[in-house]
Design a protein around this nucleic acid. Structure first.
Lengths: 342, 342
DNA sequence: CTCATTATTCAAAGCGCTTTGAGTCAGACT
DNA sequence: AGTCTGACTCAAAGCGCTTTGAATAATGAG
C-alpha cells in the first residue's frame, strides 16, 4: 500500500492525502479524518526512503563503532548509554543506526555517512585526547554531540560529560581523610580522555594534600574484571602494598574484590575500594546498602541527554554548541574504612 | 556531489556512470577507470535513500528492542551478540538499525518496519516460549533469523541457538558425578525460551540419575549480580543448603561467589558453582585457568552466524529456513569439587 | 448578479538513483 | 557497398514521497 493507491481508494489526490497525514492546515477536517481512518485501516506507512529522499531528512542518528577496539561496542557502558539514547531518539521520531568500521579509519566512516546522506546527525562516543574526529565533524557540518570531551580540542562543540576530574579528586580526598596514603589507581586506557581526567583528579588531590604519588600504584588498561584481579594481586605482593584502591569501573572493582578475598584479606577492613559506578541496570551496586563506595553517575541518563541535545541541534543547526556537565554522586558503601594502623 | 553533477563533470550520462560504479559489464574498462577515479576524487557516494528507493533494497537490518524489558538492550549478552552480528553485516554491506518500541507492542513495530520498507530483514532476539512474533514475521514475509528458538512454535523458521538443554544436562550430570545431590539452579526468567530449556536439561539429568528435584532450590529471575547474591544467601540459610549451584550467567555467578565468600565459605571447596559463560569479551572467565567451571559458548559468534544466515536469506528468499545448533563447551575451572562429606 | 476572497483540492515537478529500451559507431562479413 | 554484430553509450521512465503553483468551489461583499 503506497500513497498513490491510498489516494485512489479515497478518490483524492496524493497531495491532499499527504497533507492530511502530515497535519497541514489546508485540508478540511472531514477529509483529514477520512484519510486518517483509511490509512489506519490499510496499515499505510509512508516509505521511509521515499520520504527521506523528498524531505532531505533521514530521521536517523548514526553511531560509528570502530572495530579496532574490539571491546567498544561490547562494553557494557556503551550498551547502557545507547539504551538511554535510543529511548530518547524514539521520542523525537529518530531511529538509530550503527556503522561498524574497520580499524581506525572512522573518519572515512563519518564522511561516508554524510555523503550517503544516511543520517541527520551522529553521536561520538569514547573521545580520545586530542580527538581529530571532532574537528572533522565540525568541518563537515554534520550535527553531532560528544559523550565526553576531548582535551586539546579548542574549537567549540556540543558535549555531555560527567565531571571526572572532580569526582576522582573527591574520592581521593575521601580516602586521604580516612588516613590512607598508599592509594592505588586502576584507571581505564589513558588515551581515553575520561581516564586522563580521572588521573588528573587523583594526582591533584594527592598533591594538594601532600601525599606522595607513587607511579607503581597507577595502572591503566582496558577495564575488565581480569585487569582488576591481576593488578591487585600484583600490588598486594609489593613490599608496601596499597591500603586503598580507586578503580574506574564496577567490573574492574569486582576483579579487585576477588583478588582481595583470594589473598585472605577483607575488603572494607584491610583494604578500601572506591569505584566509579555507571549505574548499569544489570550490574547494580548492591540493593539498599551499596557494596562499593562509589562515584555514581548514570550513563544511561547521559545517553538520554545527549540524544535530546542532538535532536535540538538538528532542528536548529545554527545555534551555538550546547554543553552539559554532570556531577557524580559519592555514595558511601561498605568497601571503605579508615586506613589500618601499622 | 550527486550522480548528475558527477556525470556532467565526466561528460558522460548518468546511466554510464551508474553502471561503471556498480560493476556492470557493458562499460569499457577505460571509462570505468575514469569514472572510479573521479568518484574517488570528489568523494562521491550514492545517496542511500535514493538508491534504496530505486532498488527496493534498504541495505539495512533491523533489531526491535522492547522498552518494556528495561534490561534487554542493556544486557551485556545482547551487546556481544550485536557486536558479532554487526561485524558480519558490514561484510555483506548492510547497516544495522535499532527500533525502540514502547511496551509490548513489538508486533506493531515489525509491521511498521515492513510498511515503511525500512529494512530488508530483522533479527529476533530473546524469543519467549510460544513467541507470537515468529508467526507474525512468517506471515509478513519479512526475512528474519531468531537467536534462540521458541518452544511451541511449529511452523519452520530460521534460527541459531546453543543447545541449552544438553549443556545444562551435562553440567548437572557433572555435578552429580562429583557426588552432589543438593544442586541449586539459578535460572533466567522462565518465560524466556532458553531458560525453559536449561531448566529442562537440569531436571532431566536429576531424574535420570534418580536425584530428587527440590523446587526450593530452583529460582528464576533477571540475571543480575544482585539476584545471584540474594538467592545464594537465602539458600545458604536453609536447613539443608545446596552443595552446588548452577547458574545461567557469569554476572549472576559473580553474585553467587560474593555470597559464598561473605558467608565465610570457599567456592570450589565448600560449594561448587557452574555457570553458563557467553564468553563476553570484557568479562572473561579468568585468563589461563578459568575461574568458574562453565558451559562456554560465544554469543558473539552466534551473532556472526545469525547475520550471515540472514544475509543469505535475503538474497534468496525462497529457500527453506536455515538452522544452526551450537554446542556449549564444558570447561573445568576451580569452582567445582567433589561434594563435601557430611 | 458580479467579483474578490477564502477554503479546498489537484496536477506536475523534483528529490537522486537504477534500469529499460533505444541509439551510435566501428569493425567484420557477404 | 551494404548489412550485421558487438561494444558502448544515452535519454527517459520510474521508485514513492513532498511541495510548488494553479485550479476549482464556496463564501461574502458590493
Amino acid at each position: 500500500m503506497n500513497l498513490k493507491t491510498l489516494a485512489e481508494q479515497l478518490g483524492l489526490s496524493q497531495t491532499t492525502v499527504s497533507r492530511a497525514l502530515n497535519g497541514y492546515p489546508e485540508v478540511s477536517e472531514a477529509t483529514r479524518l477520512r484519510v486518517e481512518q483509511a490509512a489506519e485501516q490499510f496499515g499505510y506507512r509512508p516509505n521511509s526512503r521515499a520520504k527521506g529522499l523528498a524531505t532531505g531528512r533521514a530521521m536517523m542518528i548514526g553511531h560509528v563503532i570502530p572495530t579496532s577496539n574490539k571491546h567498544e561496542m561490547v562494553n557494557p557502558v556503551f550498551g547502557d548509554f545507547v539504551a538511554g539514547a535510543s529511548e530518547a531518539y524514539a521520542k523525537f521520531g529518530y531511529d538509530m543506526m550503527f556503522a561498524r568500521v574497520r580499524d581506525g579509519n572512522t573518519e572515512q566512516a563519518y564522511r561516508e555517512l554524510l555523503a550517503k546522506r544516511a543520517v541527520d546527525g551522529v553521536v561520538l562516543q569514547g573521545p580520545l585526547i586530542n580527538d581529530s574526529r571532532i574537528a572533522l565533524l565540525n568541518k563537515m557540518g554534520l550535527p553531532f554531540v560528544v559523550h565526553g570531551r576531548s582535551t586539546g580540542v579548542s574549537a567549540p562543540y556540543s558535549w555531555v560529560d560527567v565531571n571526572n576530574k572532580r569526582a576522582f579528586q573527591r574520592a581521593t580526598e575521601f580516602l586521604i581523610d580516612l588516613g590512607h596514603r598508599r592509594i592505588a589507581l586502576l584507571n581505564g586506557l589513558e588515551t581515553m580522555d575520561f581516564a586522563q581526567r580521572r588521573r588528573d583528579g587523583y594526582v591533584t588531590a594527592m598533591e594538594d594534600r601532600g601525599v606522595p604519588v607513587d607511579p607503581a600504584l597507577m595502572r591503566a588498561q582496558e577495564m575488565t574484571e581480569v585487569f582488576g584481579h591481576q593488578e591487585t594481586m600484583a600490588m598486594l605482593a609489593m613490599d608496601h602494598p596499597p591500603t586503598a584502591i580507586l578503580t574506574s569501573s564496577m567490573i574492574t572493582a569486582i576483579g579487585v574484590r576477588r583478588a582481595i578475598e583470594e589473598s585472605g584479606l577483607k575488603m572494607g577492613r584491610d583494604i578500601s575500594v572506591i569505584t566509579h559506578d555507571d549505574d548499569l541496570s544489570y550490574l547494580k551496586n548492591g540493593r539498599d546498602v551499596p557494596i562499593f563506595t562509589a562515584l555514581r553517575s548514570s550513563v544511561r541518563n547521559a545517553g538520554e541527554i545527549a540524544a535530546a541535545m542532538l535532536a535540538e541541534l538538528i532542528d536548529s543547526p545554527d545555534q551555538p554548541p550546547m554543553n552539559r556537565m554532570l556531577e557524580a554522586e559519592l555514595v558511601v558503601g561498605s568497601s571503605t574504612a579508615p586506613a589500618p594502623r601499622d
